[in-house]
Design a binder for these strands. Structure first.
Lengths: 235, 235
DNA sequence: TAACACAACTTGTAAATACAAGTTAAAAAA
DNA sequence: TTTTTTAACTTGTATTTACAAGTTGTGTTA
């Protein structure tokens, strides 16, 4: 018997109302007692629903005052989960593919530990250079395990999001990941690619993204010119 | 009358026991009914304490089984949400307070927008220098609005986590935030504080953390020497 | 022996009730 | 008019009771 719980129903309803703007940002939700009366529930049940909303950051509660609506279903930047395209507050990045996806063996030294399956199936390698306003800003090196991805080496990636392609054509969803950040002095190759001023440091990111496909992780090394832009992330 | 609530006491106790290893990682906590009997509380109270631990990721609950200890307060690097202490994979950072918490006015130029309430209540300012293995690694400048924090300027912060104090003594929980990252060439002051090699760049982070207290946000500017360590974040 | 049923756990949901504590605005007093 | 007090809200904590639902081990039965 699939019973839908009362607190869950109220939670979904309030959540929808907040997102669609029935309750405006900054305004107060009906009081707990009003919600009890309206939906014929007891206060613990109503509070359970509100607690869930608080946990998600949809509302703030203040004793003596009420539940304050907090619209921002927080978006996603490079630091939390998604790709790079939305990370620097620029709608479209122009992308050059320096190295089309190719099947390689894994590098000898690799910043992350690989599973047995990943190691033996080889990897798909690609390099990209991404521009904002005609100026190169990102240089990224990507390693994907060679599983689940038929015909990917013959696909065009020019000005398309890698993550978009993975999601749309291969049903790969990013679940989470980990990353290491440093500020480094770039070597000559990076300096030229990103057309850096002498002495301009770059942001260096190594990341592993886990996906909904078991054993399928995305490994990227990113060099970012932070002279004119910042990496922005919210969480 | 400053009453400490029962659920809070149980929460702090269990939390301490998990961190110090009284309950091992992967093992089960005593059942809710056992905790009720042991500490003379009712089940809703016990559950409130456990819910708080779940929210922090200290335990996992499984219906029919119990509460599973999840020792690695697994998070949470600087990039996702919590403080800096757990961000670089070091359990304890030594901390020097360069500037004890003081009440200031807000700076003229500030990287984030302030609310009316924040601006008019003034801010609490503090600077810290944090060490790993006797070497300075973090230098951070913090601005908190001067609300909700009685007597904070007379508190000792040496080798204590700012977030720990906020959580324990002021019931401030971090909900989320946003941040901007750059790689920069440090100025002379930063260079000396962090004892940097010439030409060693630093990671520069500006962040705003939102909390469960309405209108109470934490603003930090962080300079990080990434020569020997990386900023690590998982999400 | 192996499969199944059941009992004894566990946590999850929900009700009804009481009082504490913070906030706000109206009423009363200066 | 200005200040203070009070009353009427709000959410926070806590007790008690009941049953639902998932998990696990122990039986019993085939």
């Amino acid at each position: 018997m699939e019973q839908i719980h009362q607190y869950r129903k109220l939670y979904e309803l309030l959540r929808k109302h907040i997102i669609t703007g029935v309750y405006e940002e900054g305004s107060l939700l009906p009081s707990e007692n009003e919600l009890c009366a309206t939906y014929s529930m007891t206060r613990p049940t109503v509070r359970h629903a509100l607690d869930t909303l608080v946990k998600e950051g949809m509302i703030l509660k203040q004793q003596g005052k009420g539940s304050i609506v907090r619209k921002p279903p927080r978006n996603i930047g490079i630091l939390s989960i998604s790709g790079t395209a939305s990370a620097i507050g620029v709608r479209y990045l122009q992308t050059d593919i320096l190295q089309k996806p190719e099947i390689h063996s894994w590098p000898e030294v690799f910043p992350f530990e690989l599973s047995e399956q990943e190691r033996e199936s080889g990897c798909i390698y690609m390099e990209r250079l991404r521009y904002v306003d005609e100026v190169p800003v990102f240089y990224d090196v990507n390693h994907l395990p060679n599983i689940y991805l038929p015909r990917i080496t013959s696909r065009s990636f020019e000005n398309k999001s890698l993550f978009e392609i993975l999601r749309k054509h291969y049903q790969v969803e990013i679940l989470g990941g980990e990353q290491k950040l440093k500020a480094i002095k770039p070597d000559e190759k990076i300096r030229q690619l990103l057309r850096l001023q002498p002495d301009q440091p770059v942001l260096h990111i190594e990341r592993k993204l886990t996906t909904n496909k078991a054993g399928f992780n995305i490994y990227s090394t990113i060099y970012f010119n932070s002279e004119k832009h910042s990496i922005f992330g919210s969480f």
